[in-house]
């Protein structure tokens, strides 16, 4: 019973974060939602008894990809800022 509740909550949270990633207009929010989605996905893989994929997802999906995307958003903002002022 406990684990079923947890799985349902996890599924709903996954769908919610996926929707939030796609639907939000703010890039930073989208990237943060994507990282949250990745971390929830780690839990989902762990629940599916696939610790190997959970490890890879945590390190590559949530960690490295998240850092890359955040860095890209930072570059986009830095490039846009001079245009806004002048």
């Amino acid at each position: 019973m406990m684990s079923l509740t947890f799985d349902l909550l996890l599924g709903v949270a996954l769908l919610w974060s996926a929707w939030h990633t796609l639907a939000t207009a703010d890039l930073i929010r989208a990237v943060v939602s994507f990282i949250v989605f990745g971390l929830l996905m780690v839990l989902a893989w762990a629940r599916l008894d696939a610790p190997d994929i959970a490890l890879a997802e945590a390190a590559i999906g949530a960690g490295l990809t998240g850092a890359l995307l955040l860095d890209s958003v930072g570059h986009l903002r830095a490039r846009r800022r001079p245009g806004d002022n002048g």
């Binding site: 190997d52 890879a56 590559i60 960690g63």
Partner: peptide
Amino acid sequence: PGGAFQAGAV
């Protein structure tokens, strides 16, 4: 569980 891909990513 572990291996080269995970270790490299870390």
